[in-house]
Design a protein around this nucleic acid. Structure first.
Lengths: 378, 378
DNA sequence: CTGAAAGCGCTTACAG
DNA sequence: CTGAAAGCGCTTACAG
């Protein structure tokens, strides 16, 4: 494997990527279809026959029922091991009339929030003997969302958890049929949705207000806001930010709407960087904050010396960014656990931790001459 | 919501976190169990009765079979819509004898690689009418891994995809029963595993060698390597790195073993930062690179002026880090798609893009006096 | 303690 | 074109 031929072995200029030509994907296909044995798998009657009992007693030992003679029980167990028998989940659940799998619906399982929430759901589900499915929602195509919902809302489903932090999730909620257990992870108290579905949420509004107040208390005249996509027009984070500014008598700048990615934060951050009046920026998530900080740096406005930036989420990279990011930590894993508990309807208390402002190094006082002495009221 | 009371409204010092006391998790429970209708869901015989036909003709229209009179077909369709009938997937798959769900096994679904691979699997699966399940493997507990495998390897499963980039995944592969379709995402050509299971992999070895050669060609005397966990002792990335150093006649430093996180990279990066001989570091993933760069910065050794750092993965944050990270881009989404195709055994060609070195700003020539003129041979 | 019967909700043959 | 039968692999009553 070699860099593209270059006479002096120096870096080829004007070419940002090297295609590693020989670094191809290798696909090994051992036996087609895996180790799949051509013979059909062993069924409950097979082990019954071999053990010299009826399939009913096999069923009993599988399910740990009492009233099975210890000797026959041991015998059956031995045959089960010998034949490598594994009961069919499909058959079991059909006869039981209840599937033990919950499906989580999300527009993007690689984003920090959804990924962590999924992990929380899986953790709680596995502990309860449930399986978890994932179905991703097409953000651009409402018809596809409806189709996904349709596939997932099988009458035999154990429940559906929809991550409704964006439009796709809200659309899914809208087309959900009646008769299926659903829990929604909502952006914040949405009166309508909260009444229709059991739901979990974090107090985004208060958290955004606290983050904003933190920046104001540092001496900034006002705080700009770069918003991630939201399920509602009046996103709770936006509300909290605005309320905190109003309470302090500060100007309320126009919301800058963005996507989820660092690239989007960078694009939206450039005009902000060009505006000398901007000294403090709150971002809808940490990735946006990274992009904004990058734009500031590029414009020669170092963070936090010239401008302060605060994020949302506290992703694992936040503490190791340059500068380490001040952000609002959100417990998505706990939220996921709570989603599953609500599906089970056990009445167990919520476990997700409340949002927490983690103060690191990306926010500080505004540059001299732009300081604003203000008393922040509760 | 207020910061903790502080007489002058300044930041409380020596306290890194503010607990946003009132920002509690809200859990709304509308009707217990969701909108679950207490009445049982409608079955195929219900619509048959209402439509005045046998359940067989209903089955035929559901499955788009020909040989159904158009009039009765329309009639049945109308009743299906009216009663909101949805066929039970459980029953359907049991009678068909084949489940249309594949499960992916991974130790950590929030990490970039597994998350992106899962997304690729889901995309391909959804397009083919399959569902996808996720099951996370406990890295610390082999017994728990065996139990997870056991749950997932139901005889009715549509297939299992195991992400075997670490020990937990390899353990899962080891205890997999025969008779289930499995595809493994392997770190690189592992002769044994590759023969036992259909598998997909990227050419990590060549990519690591290319990245190493890139650093050497910049003039560094040698390249240190901070490794992410691996499934094998002789990880292909380590091999590629070592081979490139040897081919260039460079010293081969001790491998620094680390975890997956930026925090781990930081911990392992500190001793490296303290060692003035270290001028170039290759990292097993981008998160580790962030941690290493942070350690360097903290030690007053700016990247890339004093030391060069290269990562692996090209996560979305990489381009917006300070400095923008030079890294090897890996197509995990494509790999996931390929996994699903192998499960289906369609013989479709692999689609994952080959690894690609993305040159940004975290690697440059070594500081003066430490430059090494060397001719890098192919 | 154990088994023969009936059923979960759908399907694939096989008859009309 | 349509239906009565039998079966997918398990389960829950109900008898012995």
């Amino acid at each position: 494997l070699t860099p593209p031929p270059a006479a002096d072995d120096h870096l080829p200029c004007g070419r940002e990527h090297w295609l590693l030509a020989s670094a191809l994907v290798a696909v090994t296909s051992a036996s087609p279809g895996g180790r799949a044995d051509p013979s059909r798998s062993v069924r409950i009657r097979d082990v019954a026959r071999r053990a010299g009992v009826s399939h009913m007693t096999v069923s009993r030992v599988i399910n740990g029922h009492p009233h099975v003679k210890e000797a026959t029980r041991q015998q059956v167990l031995a045959v089960i091991r010998e034949m490598e028998y594994r009961p069919s989940r499909l058959a079991r659940e059909l006869s039981l009339g209840a599937s033990r799998t919950v499906t989580v619906l999300t527009a993007n399982p690689t984003l920090h929030g959804p990924a962590a929430l999924l992990q929380g759901v899986e953790e709680a589900a596995r502990a309860a003997g449930f399986s978890v499915g994932v179905c991703v929602l097409d953000s651009a195509d409402p018809a596809a969302v409806a189709q996904s919902v349709d596939r997932v809302c099988d009458p035999s489903t154990g429940g559906v958890i929809v991550i409704a932090y964006d439009l796709a999730g809200v659309r899914a909620l809208r087309v959900l049929p009646t008769g299926v257990r659903v829990v929604a992870a909502l952006e914040a108290t949405d009166a309508r949705a909260g009444r229709r579905y059991p739901s979990v949420m974090l107090d985004d509004r208060s958290a955004a207000a606290a983050a904003t107040r933190h920046l104001l208390s540092l001496g900034h005249r006002t705080v700009h806001y770069v918003a991630a996509p939201s399920s509602t027009r009046a996103s709770p984070r936006t509300q909290g930010w605005r309320a905190a500014l109003r309470a302090a008598g500060a100007d309320v700048p126009r919301v800058v709407t963005a996507g989820w990615s660092p690239a989007s934060g960078y694009r939206r951050g450039r005009p902000l960087a060009a505006n000398r009046d901007v000294t403090a920026v709150l971002c809808g998530n940490d990735d946006l904050a990274f992009g904004v900080i990058h734009a500031m740096r590029e414009a020669g406005r170092p963070v936090p010396d010239e401008v302060s930036v605060v994020g949302f989420d506290d992703i694992p990279q936040a503490a190791f960014y340059a500068p380490p990011l001040t952000t609002v930590r959100l417990d998505f894993v706990g939220l996921g656990r709570d989603c599953f508990r609500l599906i089970r309807d056990t009445g167990a208390p919520a476990t997700a931790a409340p949002p927490e402002l983690v103060i690191r190094a990306s926010a500080g006082p505004p540059p001299k001459g732009r300081m604003c002495i203000r008393r922040i009221s509760p």
